[in-house]
């Protein structure tokens, strides 16, 4: 059986990590499922495990004029009860799993798991979030899209730990978040859509669009957003076929036990269409 460590501080966690190259265990709501064996047996961890879910330094949320910083081990429940957490992220988090899992599952865990169906990812992409990675007194900051490499893989080094998520403040007045799951609640996503816009009078001054679960990683295109940004809402309406066709090239879903490629692609575009047509108005 593997060694398990329960450090008493972040520093201790970093120290153990640089020593051991271990599996970081935050809430464990995904790890315990991925590594489960039959009932009564200890889950199958092949490397040492460091429990970090209890570390206070990783559970803090701080707000400044520029940004909000969220500790990686903040549970979903903690995010929901903090007033500075962006509404769109709360909307997304409130639809993750069930109350018991939201009490233990963490935002850092959701990010590092890097599942194509990870629910917070499209929202974090859309909000231009970055992550802070720590090792031995050194830190680096990466935009979320640079952090996630592919399904289940990130650029996290063996001796690195995700400590904080930075979300710059931004202002939007149009929101559309839609998770299409296998049932109404407590479900994995077939598709998720995040649409944000700032509309002043008839001009769309800012826009963010992200799709989850329909490609190996989140689909967000700053180029297409730039083409929409600054345009008049009527002009955007005319651009819709063109915008859909751009995204259609980026959305590359799979068929699996929860849905199929055609559905994922068509519905993603339907949701985008709906955002541009109905929610932006």
């Amino acid at each position: 059986m593997v060694d398990t460590f329960k450090p008493q501080s972040l520093q201790e966690a970093v120290d153990v990590l640089s020593d051991k190259g271990a599996i970081l265990f935050a809430g464990g709501t995904d790890l315990m499922v991925q590594r489960r064996r039959r009932g009564g047996l200890i889950p199958d961890f092949d490397r040492p495990v460091i429990l970090i879910g209890h570390l206070k330094e990783l559970k803090e949320i701080s707000n400044s004029t520029r940004e909000i910083r969220i500790g990686s081990c903040c549970t979903y429940t903690a995010l929901l009860s903090h007033k500075a957490v962006p509404e769109i992220l709360k909307t997304c988090v409130s639809q993750i799993a069930s109350p018991g899992i939201r009490n233990r599952g963490t935002i850092g865990g959701n990010i590092c798991n890097a599942s194509p169906a990870g629910d917070t990812l499209p929202v974090l992409y859309a909000l231009d979030a970055s992550v802070i990675l720590a090792r031995d007194n050194k830190e680096r900051v990466l935009p979320i899209e640079k952090f996630i490499k592919g399904p289940g893989t990130t650029v996290l080094e063996a001796d690195e730990l995700l400590t904080r998520i930075i979300i710059p403040h931004s202002s939007f007045n149009k929101f559309f978040y839609k998770k299409v799951g296998t049932r109404a609640y407590n479900a994995l996503s077939k598709i998720s859509f995040t649409g944000l816009a700032l509309k002043k009078l008839r001009a769309v001054e800012d826009v963010r669009i992200a799709f989850g679960a329909v490609s190996p990683t989140v689909v967000r295109s700053k180029d297409i957003e730039a083409q929409i940004r600054g345009k008049d809402i009527d002009a955007i309406q005319k651009m819709i076929p063109e915008i859909l066709s751009h995204y259609s090239k980026l959305i590359d879903p799979i068929s699996d036990q929860r849905s199929n490629r055609r559905y994922r692609k068509t519905v993603s575009l339907n949701l985008l269409n709906s955002f541009l047509k109905n929610y932006m108005l």
């Binding site: 464990g28 709501t29 499922v33 429990l51 109350p99 899992i101 009490n103 233990r104």
Partner: peptide, 25 residues
């Protein structure tokens, strides 16, 4: 696997699913 809630317990008064909670935590 944390789907059904039959194993629910309270940990410090909060709902938790004991099938996906390691005892160390």
């Amino acid at each position: 696997e944390g789907e059904c809630g039959a194993c629910a317990v309270l940990v410090d008064g909060e709902l938790a699913l004991s099938c996906i909670t390691p005892v160390g935590s």
